[in-house]
Design a protein around this nucleic acid. Structure first.
Lengths: 110, 110
DNA sequence: TGCAACTATGTCTAATATGACATAATTCGT
DNA sequence: ACGAATTATGTCATATTAGACATAGTTGCA
């Protein structure tokens, strides 16, 4: 895992520590984290592609701008449920979602 | 949506009602529900394929048998997060997860 | 540069998901 | 049909996630 990604995770409230400590995260935990980040990226990408602001998406979700921001940042306090609901609300197809999930796998070593 | 599936959803705590009412669920809500059910099925299928009991999986997750049961039943009280963690714990690949998600799309009209 | 729109971050209380436990129901081998 | 193992369901208290709000930071364009 590169330092850019580690920084991002730490800002998002994850306890990642240095490389050695990170490796002590269980394999599943690390994969789960990657998955969340991949979907977070998906939300942002799709939202921007649709030309929506965070505030507009939040309104459609019945949520708030700050929650959307945290979601896209991969914040610890945001559930996968909200991410999925967001993707569906924006109009992502199952195929697109599947694509982002596969990307998480690809990104593992990065 | 057929009545078998509707029954299952109702037992799991979802307020689905008859066909007419169901159609009043927002499009995203319906898709979200399908997605959860598809992943619930994925958990069960993969767990059984691995020859694990709910109790054993629960222990590996640091959870409890009852929660795994509810999860596989698509219970309203179970998050996608726990489902994903379960799939990863059982050793699902991103490709497999993606497959189940696509199946949700296919199952939409069923 | 200034300013308007957008995004990020922190922190509340309320809502929801959690593991645990008890116990009922089911399944399956003998 | 019996019993042992497994799965289902209901309910707690506790923990986590929720939307809301305030406000700080960023971006881009006039």
């Amino acid at each position: 895992m590169n330092s850019v990604k580690r920084k991002r995770l730490e800002r998002a409230g994850w306890v990642v520590g240095d490389t050695t400590e990170f490796l002590q995260l269980s394999e599943e935990e690390a994969r789960f984290l990657e998955l969340k980040l991949a979907l977070a990226n998906g939300v942002r990408e799709l939202r921007e592609r649709r030309g929506l602001t965070q505030a507009v998406l939040a309104e459609r979700l019945g949520s708030s701008q700050s929650r959307v921001a945290k979601m896209e940042a991969g914040d610890r306090s945001v559930s996968l449920d909200l991410m999925m609901r967001s993707l569906l609300t924006i109009g992502a197809t199952a195929t697109e979602i599947a694509k982002w999930i596969k990307r998480a796998e690809t990104d593992r070593a990065a």
